[in-house]
Amino acid sequence: MSKPTVLLACDFSDRFKQLLTDRYKVLGPMPRSAPDALPVGASAALALVTKGGLQTDRALIEALPELGLVSYFGTGFEGIDLQAASEHGLTVTHSPGANASSVADFAMGLVLASTRQILAADRFVREGRWTGNSLVSMAAVPGLTGARLGIYGFGAVGRKLASRAAAFEMKIAYHSRTPKSDTACSYKASVRELAEWADILIVAVRADPSNYHIVDRSLLAALGLNGHVVNVARGSLIDADALAEALEQGMIAGAALDVFENEPTVPDRLLNAPNLILSPHIAFASTGARNAQEDMVLANLEAFFDNRAVPNPIDPF
């Protein structure tokens, strides 16, 4: 009996590709998620494995006539045309929560790096500027104890951020679509209200058309001169030009980005912006979190091909 065909929209770890190859005929990875980039034999693909930031639009769906499943590595699924998927009877799955601890850990690392100027301190030493007999070699900055952390998005990542921030003795508030009854953290009725309150704003919300570029010039101004913004969600949530301008003009104190709107391309203006820390979308990428997400994708594929209910369908769909 021949193996069912699975198409990879992007590259994945060697571990994951080997596990897939053991069970399926694997095509890809595609150089880009578009109909003109489909490999030979893709018309037979029954499942597409992809990630949230890649486009799975109507044209791609219709170029895959046998497609029955789109399985997302990670929580996000903003790249798919849900209407087209529904019309073609596709099952769509994701892997929620598996990377939440990893992302929360990394986000707190970015908070520390930005607020305590860790990268700047490293450069300070390497460039030979640590001289003299002063008690403080670099200017003192506010610490995290007592600082106000605003969490935009209070899902699995947001909740883990709150628990980690509590250990730093921070004040914590959040904004999400609805207030949560099972947390002592303060709820703010809007993102703007959260930014006005916060010293540090962490973006950890799922991206969709309603929050495109929601972190704009106005919101950054509300965050204020001493504010920091950290994004571990999706690049589309932040207006990159507005952020670069805010940093260039000193409208905010600093920022850290793990995600970008058109990955892996990073605008030159961001590359040259002061007080900005950049990382290549690796908040999720601890070994344990990556393996757990891969295993969830495998479980969704296995259930689909066994004609069982998939464990992680996108809801609502």
Rank of each mutant, 00 (worst) to 15 (best):
T21W: 01
S218Y: 02
G109F: 12
R290P: 00
A167C: 12
L7Y: 06
I277G: 00
A47P: 04
G41R: 02
S186C: 06
T183W: 08
D81F: 10
I252A: 10
V6C: 03
N312T: 14
V310N: 05
E196A: 14
T183P: 04
N262I: 10
L243C: 07
R159Y: 09
V92Y: 05
A285M: 08
A198M: 07
P31C: 05
D268I: 12
T145E: 14
E263D: 10
L270P: 02
L38D: 12
D216L: 08
R192E: 14
L219T: 13
S86W: 03
T287G: 03
G76M: 11
R23S: 14
D295A: 15
S114A: 15
F73P: 00
E169Q: 15
K25C: 13
P35N: 08
A256G: 15
N211M: 09
D36K: 06
N300C: 10
S71C: 14
P179A: 12
A104H: 07
V92G: 02
A173C: 12
I282Q: 08
A303W: 13
W130G: 00
H281D: 03
G288A: 14
L135F: 14
R15Q: 02
T115F: 00
A139H: 14
L69D: 06
R126H: 12
I214V: 14
S190L: 09
G254T: 12
S71Y: 04
F77V: 09
P142H: 10
E248S: 14
V141T: 13
L54Y: 12
N275E: 08
G224V: 05
T75V: 15
H175E: 03
T265K: 09
A246I: 11
A207M: 11
L8P: 04
V191G: 02
